[in-house]
Design a protein around this nucleic acid. Structure first.
Length: 429
RNA sequence: GUGAGUGUAGCCCAGUGGUUAAGGCGCCAGGUUGUGGCCCUGGAGAUCGUGGGUUCAAAUCCCAUCACUCACCCCA
């Protein structure tokens, strides 16, 4: 039998309400802040990621789905969302709009890696980006927005970690200081860290091994090496967050996986220390658009993993409000009633009443059982007796009460009850 | 890419060398000539992940392989 590809999964109907809930909250927070939706293709020119974005990081070096199409074009399944958004910003001349341009996206990302808890080959990200302005006020807006989004979902146990990793002026000084510091500990480092010392020194800071953590704790801090502009930016951002009353933790060991970050980096961590890592993260990427071959343009953004959000919603037992829908099930007995049921179903649907029909000639018992299993509010029973008198038996599935209604009155009666029930329990969505 | 654990029906799982692989959920039917949710009865549904080996005999032991899960690397 065929199975879904490794690390990729089907999202079955019972899970859909939760997905819908998260997507709706995402869209509504974006509306609130004036961020507009943008869809980009799942596939991009591979170069967008390999050259411009993050050469030297694992995510493009060894985790990218990359292939040639029939025309020989090198394409890639997108491993992240920011670069495609920047590509679209440039391709469509969005730099001609008033800056910054505020956009959001919800879509699949792909990484070729061994799946485990909270980590998949296909996962879904919700992200928002403000492009075209370097003000720290925007960093603050993005972070507050991320927080508001998570709170609106009902999540509580998370914290926002914040750091600044400087810019291309001040970071090289920091990196060499870091290397100098680590040189004296080289013998004590774990094998992974020894490799990191060469390949990606910043990553030394977030090693999980206890001894390496002790060394990292005492290491030089990025913030001590920031150039005056970066320092001013970072201080201004913190001031803004304090004004916004958005709590954050300064974490001098926070660095992020993508190379394009400059200055601000932040991550949302669940309170429970899990190995599956961050709920989401983001930062400023003032060099990215220049790397794509355009004039230098600042940007800042955030992205969250929907699967991880959902798993945290489940852990924190946040209950999703069920969509209050009233549905009707049509049960019929006999050939004539079956045809009448077909006709009635069409009329009900025409009246915007959600309706399901029994497919075959099953017993009434079986049909009611099905109506019950599908959670119908009402069952309309059409039998031989009803056919003779041109009536229908309307059964309230909750109370079990039923009454005989002229066939011509079925729609009107159901509409009435629906209006009544909606009035009694106003929807909260 | 590395390491560990696990593969028995749609789902949860019992069964550690010996008849026909047990149970629960779910599904279908009956108990009610046209009445769901509870209860009772019955039924369908499993090449025991796959291939090979050991043995008179393998779901059970061995080897390989695949898949899943968890962890590392890394990340959402």
């Amino acid at each position: 039998m065929y199975k879904a590809p490794r690390g990729m999964s089907d999202i079955l109907p019972p899970e859909q309400p939760l997905w819908k809930y998260v997507k709706e909250k995402a869209a509504s927070v974006c509306d609130l802040y004036g961020y507009q939706p943008l869809n980009t293709p799942v596939i991009e020119d591979a170069g967008l990621f390999t050259h411009a974005v993050a050469g030297g990081t694992d995510i493009v070096d060894k985790e990218m789905y990359i292939f040639k199409d029939r025309g020989g074009q090198e394409l890639a399944l997108r491993p992240e969302g920011t670069a495609p958004v920047c590509r679209a910003y440039l391709e469509h001349g969005l730099f001609n709009l008033p800056q910054p341009v505020k956009l959001y996206y919800i879509g699949a990302s792909f990484r070729y890696e061994r799946p485990q808890a909270g980590r998949y080959r296909q996962h879904h990200q919700f992200g928002f980006e403000a492009i075209g302005d370097a003000s720290p006020f925007l960093d603050a807006e993005i972070i507050e927005m991320a927080q508001r989004f998570l709170l609106s979902l009902g999540l509580r146990d998370f914290s926002i970690h914040l750091n600044s990793i400087g810019c291309r002026t001040c970071r090289p000084g920091y990196v060499s200081a870091l290397k100098r510091y680590y040189a004296s500990f080289e013998g004590e480092l774990c094998p992974d860290c020894k490799a990191r010392l060469e390949r990606n020194p910043l990553r030394l800071l977030d090693c999980k091994k206890r001894h390496c953590q002790e060394i990292a704790e005492a290491a030089p801090r990025t913030t001590a090496f920031l150039c005056p502009d970066c320092l001013a930016h970072f201080e201004s951002l913190q001031e803004c967050l304090n004004i916004l009353k958005t709590p954050f933790l300064l974490n001098h060991r926070l660095v992020r996986g993508l190379d394009y970050y400059t200055r601000t980096v932040f991550e949302v961590q669940p309170q429970e220390e899990t190995s599956q890592g961050a709920l989401g993260g983001g930062g400023r990427y003032d060099d990215l658009i220049e790397a794509l071959g355009a004039k230098p343009t600042a940007g800042v953004g955030f992205a969250a993993g929907i699967e991880r959000l959902i798993s945290n919603l489940r852990e924190q037992q946040v209950n999703v409000p069920p969509s209050p829908h009233i549905t009707v099930f049509l049960a019929s007995l006999g050939a004539e009633a079956r045809k009448e049921s077909l006709k009635l179903a069409s009329v009900l649907r025409g009246a915007e009443i959600a309706t399901m029909e029994s497919a075959g000639n099953k017993s009434l018992k079986s049909q009611l059982k099905q109506a019950n299993a599908r959670g119908s509010s009402y069952t309309v029973i059409l039998g031989e007796e009803e056919m003779k008198s041109r009536t229908a038996m309307l059964r309230d599935m909750k109370s079990g009460e039923q009454r005989l209604v002229p066939l011509s009155q079925v729609v009107a009666t159901l509409r009435q009850t629906r209006a009544l029930e909606r009035g009694q329990s106003p929807g909260d969505t």
